[in-house]
């Protein structure tokens, strides 16, 4: 029995690294998935808002005009309510249920208008920008549409590297490509100084690269 246990103990550490490195992984290009989402047709990159949604940027003048119109409608409703009240008290009403139905519908409409006016007032204060709480449901929907089909508890999903700009970088007049053709020290120093921009030289680098740790690595 002890023999088998010893064998198992010897074999187990050998299997462990393989099982860890054997974790399957998939790739996702989040940038492309987001840009292809139907909601992105409504996205206005200039303003950072989504058209035809509650997170649409509104024109302040239009909001003020809308509020003036709604305030006018409220006055009309209040006038009707007053007339209704006078009628209810001073004369016989044949259909009391219809009277109260009318009272309720006017009250509901007035409440809706007041609520909308308050919302518009809040947007006017913030230059027509809706509150960020209007953005969260849109982001939630986009994320759900993208992440839910991709989710796999047995798989690690790696995002592709962001695609770099295709324009050749000109950094303070220094052409970093020169390093390849003229390997002198000064060019190398320039290359290292601007190392954070090196990626710009390789427009097609958007593949995930996995490095497997070799037995000789100590770091």
């Amino acid at each position: 029995m002890k023999k088998y246990v010893k064998i198992l103990l010897l074999v187990f550490p050998c299997l462990l690294p393989f099982s860890l490195f054997g974790q399957p992984f998939g790739e996702a290009d989040l940038e492309r998935l987001i840009m292809n989402h139907p909601m992105m047709k409504n996205y206005d990159a200039k303003t950072g808002h989504f058209k035809n949604t509650p997170y649409e940027l509104k024109n302040v003048a239009d909001l003020k005009l809308e509020n003036a119109s709604m305030s006018s409608e409220i006055k009309e409703i209040e006038s009707k309510e007053l007339n209704n009240s006078v009628a209810a008290i001073s004369s016989e009403i044949e259909d009391e249920d219809a009277f109260w139905d009318n009272v309720v519908s006017l009250g509901v409409r007035k409440y809706q208008l007041k609520y909308k006016i308050q919302k518009n007032e809040n947007m006017i204060i913030s230059d027509g920008k809706p509150g960020s709480e209007k953005l969260y449901p849109i982001i939630d929907n986009i994320c759900n549409d993208i992440f839910v089909p991709m989710y796999d508890k047995n798989k690690v999903i790696l995002n592709k590297q962001p695609r770099y700009l295709t324009k050749k970088p000109e950094l303070n007049g220094k052409d970093l490509h020169a390093f390849w053709s003229r390997p002198d020290e000064k060019v190398l120093c320039d290359y290292l100084q601007y190392s954070s921009f090196i990626g710009l030289m390789f427009p097609s680098v958007d593949k995930t690269i996995l490095f497997q740790k070799t037995s000789g690595d100590t770091k």
Partner: peptide
Amino acid sequence: IRCIFQDPNKPWAQEY
């Protein structure tokens, strides 16, 4: 709730 008040200037009838 139904309320009525016969204010001579501004009578009030409302349902909630």
